[in-house]
Design a protein around this nucleic acid. Structure first.
Lengths: 214, 214
DNA sequence: ATATAAGTTGACCATCTGGTCTAGTTTTTG
DNA sequence: CAAAAACTAGACCAGATGGTCAACTTATAT
């Protein structure tokens, strides 16, 4: 071997990639995959369109990169909770985390929603299997709490679905929410909505709300 | 004036319109507005593409017709509930209605969700105003129940948002739900999910579940 | 310093797709 | 039975858009 391969990506490259990814996230969230124009992504990133194709092989490649970045957001303390933890605290924290993502990263939530609504054609088999494994583990944990009499729900699946549904709704449907309320949700509104949601979820499980979330 | 204008639409026309609308609903739900090809709608409706443009002036016209049809689904007994009605019964019925729509008309829910996620660019000003009026009225009703001590929630808005979020989730995210459960939701599963949701919603409001929904 | 890799850029193309045009056929109506 | 309206349908086009190409400039490493 002769000269060692350089890092294959200079500082400029890393910076531009990030710029493009951020711009693409906005555009995909706003217009969906098919509605997004590479030219618009380029304009938003203030780079010529050709550069996007230089860094990402194709529109699909760009989308997959955005999607991959989004999936890392889903990580949570709930992932590693055990049967010895307090269900009320764990669930309340999980809801609060989810709501915080909806507040700070609504674009990510929207892109994910669009992907699922369209039948998840671009989520890798690997991710799907991993997600099923995660779900199995969390359902088992919830079931253990149920068996211990710490949690009162019939089916753990529906509990998780409802948590996701409500928390993501505040990101995905923000246009409707703002229209119906007459104003957008500010930080305080999110705090109130989070408390309301935690109250509802925990009440439904026969748990009382920890002071921290009252 | 000479001959009176005929009905402007024969029997064939009405039938074809319905066929096209049904096909378009499927396609729009599956691929979104931009991802939908008129040719695919035509194939699904088993009609030549040109016919679609004949009955609906343009792709946008077709989409608007589909959307309009969908909005009529949203009508509910809750719309006309009064302060003298029983909150538990009214809310439980409302949730059950919403879940039934998710079960029987998931495409409609998906198209609506796609529309809102993208900022509701095609919902008419008229519809939006009407929706705000509806919301104001329903919020007032909920507030009246709260004032009477029949209902225990801090903010009626979040209650309604959470009801919509959960019920629509079972339609919009059916791909994810089926993947995580290992099988799709059948009628019995929907019945269970509906009971779980009603239990959660009513618990969160300090209401007990009517026998009918247990 | 200079060679090599990384990054930039405008010109250009192939294809796809919504929509038009025209010419015809069927249905309805008086 | 005509005449008019409703409906069918293939051929075709204009514009948009993802993507390629080749030439160029800048950065990096020895």
């Amino acid at each position: 071997m002769t000269a060692q391969k350089t890092n294959k990506e200079g500082r400029i490259g890393a910076q531009n990639r990030a710029r493009i990814l951020a711009a693409a996230e906005q555009e995909f969230a706003l217009h969906g995959y098919n509605g997004t124009r590479l030219q618009n992504v380029a304009d938003r990133a203030q780079l010529p369109k050709t550069n996007i194709l230089y860094y990402f092989k194709s529109k699909e490649g760009l989308y997959l990169a955005v999607l991959e970045q989004i999936l890392t957001l889903w990580n949570s303390a709930f992932d590693v909770a055990t049967v010895d933890d307090d269900p009320a605290l764990v669930l309340a924290n999980y809801v609060a985390e989810k709501m915080e993502i909806s507040r700070t990263k609504p674009e990510a939530s929207k892109i994910y929603a669009l992907e699922i609504i369209n039948g998840a054609p671009n989520l890798s088999k690997f991710y799907k299997e991993q997600h099923v494994d995660w779900m199995d583990g969390r359902v088992a944990l919830l079931q253990a709490w149920i068996d211990q009499g710490k949690l009162s729900v019939k089916d753990p699946y529906y509990l998780l679905f409802n948590i996701w549904a409500c928390s993501q709704h505040y990101a995905d449907f923000q246009a409707q929410i703002a229209a119906l309320r007459g104003k957008g949700m500010d930080k305080q509104d999110f705090s109130d909505a989070t408390k309301a949601l935690i109250h509802m979820i925990l009440s439904g499980c026969g748990l009382s709300v920890p002071d921290k979330f009252k």
